[in-house]
């Protein structure tokens, strides 16, 4: 199956830049207020020559396009978009270097507000825990060798397909977040939709937990920021997955184990945050 539609150079003239043409040929996956997300093919296969050295040839990419906002002044819009795309790319790079599982960067076009990242073949934790598809998972699912899943009867069965128990999945989550916090990266939007299990390549292999969407991330070494990050996740768990206290408990235990002595202060601060909410100061 080729994802890359046959396009002729002359037909492409209405799109001015290479990046616009990549988007024009891509498949829209979902749209939010800030960006549109596409599945695209960045590197078409060779037209002649020996077959290449890696399996990356046919790997699609995920394109996140922060489109123009009509409601903002163009100059402000351009500079905000630029700094957000750059910020997201920087956070991903920092995570990679810290050994956190995140999708790698494949292209950046600051002028167009485009970030291309590695395509993760898998599903969101939200979906796997039976929190219902967000709509986007259904679309992604169609690509997986004609196999479609009913969003209503998911959880236990889909986890089995990944060869992992619910408990182990929660441990992977805790460990990955702790690794990220150790590198002083704050995700900013930790929810079960922003975590994915990557489909394991061999049947005996353990799936990887991948953190996605660093659009709201920033760098900070403050205990407060890390505690708030965890608090946001706790609330996300509670609101999307009913009766999930024990699940979140497992996440926290794995976090504690990975974080080591840092946990003492973060854990204590998390208790404070729970009492007051994520905004530290109410003085406006």
């Amino acid at each position: 199956m080729t994802l890359y539609p046959v396009l002729y150079h002359s037909n492409m003239s209405e799109f001015n830049t290479p990046t616009q043409r990549i988007i024009a040929a891509a498949t829209l996956i979902s749209q939010g207020a800030e960006a549109k997300v596409y599945k695209a093919e960045l590197h078409p296969p060779a037209i002649s020559g020996s077959t290449s050295d890696e399996g990356y040839e046919s790997e699609p990419v995920l394109i996140k396009h922060r489109f123009n906002k009509q409601y903002r002044h163009p100059t402000l819009d351009a500079s905000l978009t630029k700094s957000r795309v750059a910020g997201e790319a920087r956070a991903i790079n920092k995570c990679l270097r810290a050994g956190v599982n995140v999708p790698g960067v494949r292209m950046v076009d600051l002028q167009e507000g485009v970030l291309g990242i590695q395509w993760i073949d898998g599903q969101s934790i939200r979906f796997l825990l039976g929190g219902g598809a967000e709509g986007e998972e259904e679309v992604e699912e169609v690509d997986d060798d004609g196999f479609e899943e009913d969003a209503t009867e998911s959880n236990e069965d889909s986890l089995k397909e990944y060869n992992i128990t619910q408990d182990d999945t929660m441990q992977l989550i805790g460990k990955e977040i702790a690794k990220m916090h150790k590198a002083d990266i704050i995700h900013g939007d930790l929810t079960t939709s922003n975590m994915m299990l990557r489909r394991p390549s061999a049947s005996d292999q353990v799936p990887e937990l991948v953190l996605i969407d660093f659009g709201l991330s920033y760098t900070s070494s403050l205990v407060e920021d890390k505690a708030v990050d965890l608090y946001v996740l706790e609330r996300a768990f509670a609101s999307t997955h009913p009766a999930s206290e024990s699940l979140f408990g497992t996440v926290m235990k794995a976090y504690e184990k990975e974080a080591g002595k840092e946990w003492k202060t973060i854990g204590r601060r998390l208790d404070d945050v729970r009492l007051r909410g994520r905004k530290r100061s109410m003085i406006g």
Binding site: V85, N93, L96, V108, L110
Partner: peptide
């Protein structure tokens, strides 16, 4: 993983 870092670094060259 080293390869992934190299790929990402090249891809985000326009970002300082």
């Amino acid at each position: 993983k080293a390869h992934e870092i190299v790929l990402s670094t090249v891809a985000m060259k326009s970002v300082v």
